[in-house]
Simulated scan of single mutants.
Amino acid sequence: MPRERARRDPQLGAAIRKRRKQVQMTLQALCDRSGVSVGYLSQVERDNATPSLGTLAQIADALGVALEYFIAAPKPSDGLTRAGQRPQFSLAHSSLTYESLAADFPGSELSSYLLHVPPGYVSETVSHEGEEMIFVLEGEIEQTLDNQSFRMKAGDCLHYSGQTAHAWSNPTEKTARILWAGTLTVLTRAGAIELPELAHKI
């Protein structure tokens, strides 16, 4: 009996490779997590082989996404979120509250969140690959880039390379609300937050 096959899509391999790189995973690491051989994964990523649905499900699970991420065509409505209906979450040992804005589809690179920043919050100083943009919606924050500080109020926006050492804080007595967008990835699985190596650096 022939195995059930995934829909033939010349972009499948590229989508798998892009997702793997987004979460900073080597082919060997994906092999270890999925149970699929490195040689076969390499063929899949080059679109020289089409995995069965079962194998694709193993790959998707190892990459932290559902099977539909690779085989379902996204609808325009998939990217729509409604005010007041977005679930909020927090990371362990952090006082920040997040609301996810970005859609999750093959090839997507942008992450976007609404951040609720409590009074007195101070982040660590970090640098990393990618880029970030912050737009202050309410309140004030102080952003530091390479030892230069910017006091930002509602309506102010800053776009910068993640490779520039940066940190930010809320030095006021009022909660700030900011829109953050960037090319870092935060995975959510079964309601829990699973962080790639850099994701906690938002």
Score class of each variant (00 low, 15 high):
residue 96 L to Y: 08
residue 182 G to D: 00
residue 18 K to Y: 07
residue 20 R to G: 04
residue 97 T to L: 12
residue 196 P to F: 08
residue 50 T to A: 07
residue 68 E to A: 15
residue 57 A to W: 05
residue 76 P to C: 07
residue 9 D to P: 00
residue 123 S to V: 03
residue 12 L to S: 03
residue 62 A to S: 00
residue 99 E to R: 10
residue 12 L to D: 01
residue 197 E to L: 14
residue 62 A to R: 00
residue 168 W to D: 07
residue 151 R to Y: 09
residue 171 P to D: 11
residue 158 L to S: 10
residue 149 S to K: 02
residue 16 I to Y: 01
residue 63 L to G: 02
residue 85 Q to G: 02
residue 65 V to F: 02
residue 5 R to N: 13
residue 124 E to F: 11
residue 76 P to D: 03
residue 1 M to Q: 10
residue 7 R to K: 15
residue 81 T to Q: 06
residue 192 A to F: 04
residue 18 K to R: 14
residue 179 L to F: 14
residue 10 P to K: 10
residue 96 L to K: 12
residue 157 C to H: 11
residue 42 S to C: 05
residue 134 I to G: 10
residue 194 E to Y: 04
residue 164 T to A: 10
residue 42 S to N: 12
residue 72 A to C: 13
residue 79 G to T: 07
residue 199 A to D: 05
residue 176 A to R: 04
residue 25 M to H: 02
residue 161 S to V: 06
residue 35 G to M: 09
residue 22 Q to M: 14
residue 93 H to Q: 10
residue 175 T to I: 02
residue 146 D to T: 08
residue 5 R to W: 05
residue 5 R to K: 15
residue 119 P to Q: 00
residue 64 G to K: 05
residue 181 A to Y: 02
residue 114 L to T: 13
residue 121 Y to G: 00
residue 62 A to Y: 00
residue 43 Q to H: 08
residue 137 L to N: 07
residue 19 R to E: 01
residue 125 T to D: 12
residue 119 P to N: 01
residue 89 F to S: 11
residue 142 E to S: 15
residue 104 D to N: 11
residue 123 S to I: 01
residue 198 L to N: 14
residue 151 R to S: 15
residue 43 Q to R: 08
residue 155 G to T: 07
residue 18 K to G: 08
residue 193 I to N: 09
residue 157 C to L: 13
residue 34 S to Y: 00
residue 107 G to K: 05
residue 177 R to Q: 10
residue 50 T to N: 14
residue 148 Q to L: 11
residue 87 P to H: 08
residue 68 E to W: 12
residue 168 W to N: 04
residue 173 E to F: 09
residue 191 G to C: 06
residue 65 V to Y: 01
residue 107 G to T: 04
residue 6 A to T: 12
residue 90 S to R: 13
residue 2 P to C: 01
